[in-house]
Simulated assay, not measured.
Amino acid sequence: MAVHWCTVPAPRPVGALTLVVSDAGLCCVAFGDHPEAATAAATRLGTEAVEDPEGTEPARTQVLEYLTGGRRTFDLPLDWRLTAGSPRTVLQTLFAHVGYGATITYAELAELSGAYVGHGYTAARGVGSIMGSNPLPVVVPCHRVTAADGLGGFGGGRPAKEWLLALEGVLTPAFDLDLG
């Protein structure tokens, strides 16, 4: 069965998001209008990608509701097959335990997930790497994971991370920040 994909608009600095949905659920969110992200996800899942906004409807609706401040949690099915092992454990822990308006450090997430017990600094770096390869950003909220001494990085760029955290009330929005 093919994966379905669409691109949804998002306020700047987030920009557009490409959503990819398999028969099992949302499997990929990519920053920007990137049909190639859908093709790559489909290839990894052994199928083809079809542009189909109707086939992505529940995911599209929930992401748009979140981006406009009308949704705080995602309750759509997620397809975790694009990640495995410790990365999947860490991402599932993040999704289950770090809610809207909350943050957690890389080291705290490493400890909470149990994936890197006793590894200290290396654990925090490992979690940072996992956040950078998160196939479901925004929905699996890697923007809520911060460095011990600041915001840390983000695959969508620091301005997008700041915008998402301001949307959730973690940061005070800048005067020129459009929160929808």
Rank of each mutant, 00 (worst) to 15 (best):
M1W: 08
M1G: 13
M1E: 14
M1F: 07
A2W: 12
A2R: 11
A2V: 09
V3A: 10
T7E: 00
P9N: 13
A10V: 08
P11K: 12
P11R: 15
R12K: 13
V14K: 06
V14G: 06
A16L: 09
A16F: 01
L17P: 13
V20N: 12
S22D: 11
A24P: 02
A24V: 09
L26Y: 12
C27D: 06
F31D: 04
D33H: 15
H34W: 11
A37G: 07
A38R: 00
A40I: 01
A41E: 07
A41Q: 06
T43Y: 10
T43C: 07
G46Q: 03
G46P: 08
G46E: 07
E48N: 10
E51I: 03
E51D: 14
E51V: 05
D52G: 05
D52A: 08
P53T: 14
E54H: 15
G55Y: 12
T56K: 12
E57T: 13
P58E: 11
A59D: 12
R60A: 15
R60K: 15
Q62G: 02
Q62S: 14
V63F: 10
L64T: 13
Y66H: 15
Y66Q: 05
Y66C: 06
L67G: 08
T68D: 15
T68F: 08
G69W: 07
G69N: 11
R72G: 10
R72M: 05
T73S: 03
F74D: 10
F74H: 09
R81C: 02
R81P: 02
L82Y: 01
T83Q: 04
T83F: 05
T83R: 09
A84H: 00
S86G: 09
P87M: 01
P87H: 03
R88T: 07
R88L: 04
T89E: 11
T89M: 08
T89F: 00
L91Q: 05
L91A: 05
L94E: 00
A96L: 02
A96N: 12
A96T: 10
H97T: 00
H97D: 09
G99C: 00
G99W: 02
G99F: 03
G101W: 02
I104F: 02
T105A: 01
E108K: 03
E108Y: 01
A110L: 04
E111Y: 00
L112H: 01
L112N: 01
S113C: 09
Y116V: 05
Y116D: 06
H119Q: 14
A123Q: 06
A123H: 02
A123D: 05
G126V: 00
S129V: 01
S133K: 14
S133H: 11
L136M: 10
C142L: 00
H143G: 04
V145Y: 03
T146A: 02
T146Q: 04
D149V: 05
L151E: 14
G152F: 03
G152I: 07
G152H: 02
F154Y: 15
F154P: 02
G155V: 10
G155K: 08
P159Y: 08
A160N: 10
K161L: 06
E162W: 02
W163L: 12
L164H: 04
L164R: 01
L164T: 05
L165T: 00
E168V: 01
G169F: 07
G169D: 11
V170F: 08
L171K: 11
T172V: 15
P173A: 09
A174Q: 13
A174T: 09
A174S: 10
F175M: 04
F175A: 14
F175R: 14
L177E: 13
L177R: 15
L177P: 00
L179D: 04
